[in-house]
């Protein structure tokens, strides 16, 4: 039972990272921008959040708890948002191709993130305690440590506030997209920019703002990965990049709906940890190649779903109609 609870909790934390990436990318794609730079933006946010927290802890004489939380949050959001802004300026103002720019952003973001992370560590002399420890402690602070609610508390209350913030963000995004004028305009821009333009909506501004905020949300995911999941230590593994692509898959899997992204992200993370926890939970020993087959599942299922949606032709499951297409008013 305890190992199942561990499986559950690590899925929730890991899934939160994917969820932030997917929510940011959903917002971006809803405006018709197919930004393939998610891994880059997640990396940028991860690096900026880590560097912000780490440098503040290192330089400040006495740390303020409020600033310890605020600085990584702002840095993480800002790092990702800068990536999104660069992308949208390239595609909207400079009219570059969306796919190519997105991939270049992945390249640059992964480069800056990994390089900068190691650079910061090298500056601190690669010492093992080169972690943003106080910040991580604040981000991992939870109610369960105080009230001891047993298994229920461990499963649902033992997370830092960013886990709950992700769910709230998804609900808020759902409400904004479905129930407000801004959301309607945003969806119109993604579905048919020419119509939106004719209706007086500033297409370019919507695209730029959506990409920038979307990038910022992706960046928050990276920050959560390093500060909360990695307990404030910078890791140079490729896991962040894989997370970024998982987020892209999740956007399709959730059929561009923020609410579906909530359970989808936990499901993806559950599958990700399957091979780690399944043997200890059930006592069944898996062959050595099983983890890789299981990690293939999210991608395989998403691929099948892409095909199935095209068969069924249900309108609410289709991607935004103008996804990946640039809109230039004079080239109509």
């Amino acid at each position: 039972m305890t190992s199942f609870v561990a499986w559950f909790t690590s899925s929730i934390v890991y899934g939160t990272v994917i969820m932030y990436g997917a929510l940011g990318e959903t917002l971006t794609q809803k405006s018709g921008q197919l930004n393939l730079g998610v891994p880059g933006m997640v990396y940028l946010g991860a690096f900026a959040g880590f560097a912000g927290g780490f440098m503040y802890e290192k330089t400040a004489a006495s740390t303020n708890e409020f600033l310890l939380v605020l600085i990584p949050l702002l840095c993480g959001f800002g790092g990702g948002a800068l990536g999104g802004l660069l992308y949208s300026l390239m595609t909207v103002v400079l009219k570059a191709n969306q796919n190519v720019t997105g991939l270049a952003l992945t390249f640059l973001g992964v480069g800056i993130g990994t390089f900068g992370g190691i650079y910061v560590l090298a500056d601190a002399g690669f010492l093992s305690f080169a972690t943003a420890r106080e910040t991580a402690a604040l981000f991992n602070m939870n109610i369960n440590a105080y009230i001891e609610a047993g298994v229920f508390g461990e499963m649902f209350l033992s997370y830092g506030f960013m886990v709950y913030a992700a769910i709230i963000l998804a609900i808020v995004m759902f409400i904004i997209m479905r129930r407000t004028r801004v959301g309607l305009n945003l969806r119109a821009v993604g579905e048919s920019p020419a119509t939106a333009d004719a209706a007086g909506i500033n297409v370019n501004r919507y695209k730029i703002v959506a990409s920038t905020i979307g990038g910022g949300i992706c960046g928050l995911g990276g920050m959560v990965y390093v500060i909360m999941y990695g307990h404030g230590g910078w890791t140079t593994t490729n896991s962040i990049e894989a997370l970024g692509w998982l987020a892209v898959a999740l956007v399709i899997f959730s059929t561009w709906k923020p609410l579906n992204a909530i359970w989808g992200s936990y499901l993806f993370a559950f599958l990700f940890w399957f091979s780690n926890y399944f043997p200890t939970v059930t006592g069944i020993v898996l062959p050595t190649y099983a983890p890789y087959l299981l990690q293939m599942l999210p991608y395989a299922v998403t691929t099948i779903m892409i095909v199935l949606f095209n068969f069924r032709k249900k309108k609410e499951n289709q991607p935004p109609a103008a996804l990946g297409l640039s809109y230039f008013r004079e080239e109509r």
Partner: peptide
């Protein structure tokens, strides 16, 4: 799928990358 069903090839081919990566990783482990 693109020619017959009109699926979005960008997302489809992107997903196929990761399926291939895991297939290779699987074979290597075997």
């Amino acid at each position: 799928c693109k020619a017959k069903l009109g699926t979005n090839e960008t997302l489809f081919t992107l997903m196929m990358n990761y399926i291939a990566i895991q297939l290779v990783a699987c074979t290597v482990r075997i």
